[in-house]
């Protein structure tokens, strides 16, 4: 669902939506009295608790034993036990799923960001009309609900021998991330002065050297936004691995969890542990990269 964030942006509108514009969007509102007073503050913090408590319950319950969970559903982990983690990680195969998810997600993000950065640079700088046309083609991908093409993708994978292949899944995700990455990165490249390349050319740098040594370091903030923001939907995606993977040892976490949940429907604490393990990388990512995630979420907003 996160990929849908920019889907309404018609390609022609991209020029008015620079992704990072701290001057306007982040401008702190002038100090005036909080609307709604103390009552509203209670509401805001109360809702924050409602947003957070289920996640905290997930965490807290994962450190309790199963018997404990059943006898006292509202209890706290006192003393905490990590037995359910050991169980999920080893006998529950969550370790395997975790490794697969990590490999597929990191690989896809790396491939997607690399090829999209190269393409975005050429699209931002190319003067020929073919680049305008290619750019519209890529950006049309923002509006395509790729999940609806799962059937042809399945037969394509079948033909290429990529069914039950983590590499295939990785390439699929890498490709589906290209439109968003190009969308964000072309805007950034366009903001860089052309004099940089002219100076580099005078000094005898090739196109590749100019791109790699000069331009890429300058768009690093945008690269971070793209990479972090693509990580989340790939990590969480469910339909593709459900359809394209066959054997349990290839499963990524979301599909692995359905397996695990099915087999351990009564072993609640182990399930909680599995859910926590699936969520931890995203929470860590969110804490270290809140700024990039927020920038990604609002990248599609023209106004």
């Amino acid at each position: 669902m996160t990929t849908a964030v920019v889907t309404t942006e018609a390609p022609t509108e991209r020029a008015v939506a620079p992704p990072a514009r701290p001057a306007r969007r982040g401008r702190p509102p002038r100090a005036h009295r909080p609307v709604g007073g103390a009552g509203a503050s209670v509401l805001l913090w109360g809702y924050a608790a409602l947003a957070l408590v289920p996640l905290l319950l997930m965490l807290s319950n994962s450190f309790r034993s199963n018997a404990d969970l059943i006898t006292d559903p509202l209890g706290l982990p006192a003393p905490p036990t990590t037995a359910s983690y050991v169980e999920a990680w080893t006998t529950g195969n969550v370790a395997t799923y975790f490794g697969n998810s990590l490999a597929v997600t990191v690989g896809a993000v790396a491939i997607s960001t690399t090829v999209a950065t190269m393409a975005a640079y050429a699209l931002a700088r190319g003067r020929s009309r073919i680049f305008r046309w290619l750019e519209s083609l890529f950006l049309s991908g923002l509006m395509l609900p790729i999940h609806l093409a799962i059937l042809p993708i399945f037969y394509l994978f079948d033909g290429l021998g990529l069914i039950d292949s983590r590499l295939g899944l990785m390439l699929m995700y890498a490709a589906s991330g290209i439109p968003f990455s190009i969308f964000v990165l072309t805007t950034f490249f366009r903001q860089l002065p052309e004099e940089l390349e002219e100076a580099a050319a005078l000094d005898g740098a090739s196109s590749w050297q100019t791109f790699w040594r000069i331009m890429v370091p300058l768009v690093r903030p945008a690269l971070a936004t793209v990479a972090v923001f693509r990580f989340v939907p790939i990590w969480n995606d469910f339909l593709f691995p459900l359809v394209l993977l066959r054997r349990e040892e290839k499963y990524t976490l979301p599909v692995g969890l359905t397996n695990f949940f099915g087999e351990n429907a009564t072993n609640y604490s182990a399930v909680f542990a599995g859910l926590v393990i699936t969520t931890i990388p995203l929470i860590v990512l969110f804490l270290v990269a809140t700024k990039q995630i927020v920038a990604g979420l609002t990248a599609g907003m023209a106004k």
């Binding site: 491939i111 690399t114 090829v115 999209a116 190269m118 393409a119 640079y121 050429a122 699209l123 680049f131 290619l134 083609l137 890529f138 991908g141 395509l144 790729i146 093409a149 042809p152 993708i153 394509l156 390439l171 699929m172 890498a174 490709a175 589906s176 290209i178 439109p179 190009i182 196109s207 791109f211």
Partner: peptide, 17 residues
Amino acid sequence: FVAPALALFAVFVLYPM
């Protein structure tokens, strides 16, 4: 510069769509 992205995009997104 565009070719790798275009190849991936064409095979795994455009063609299936």
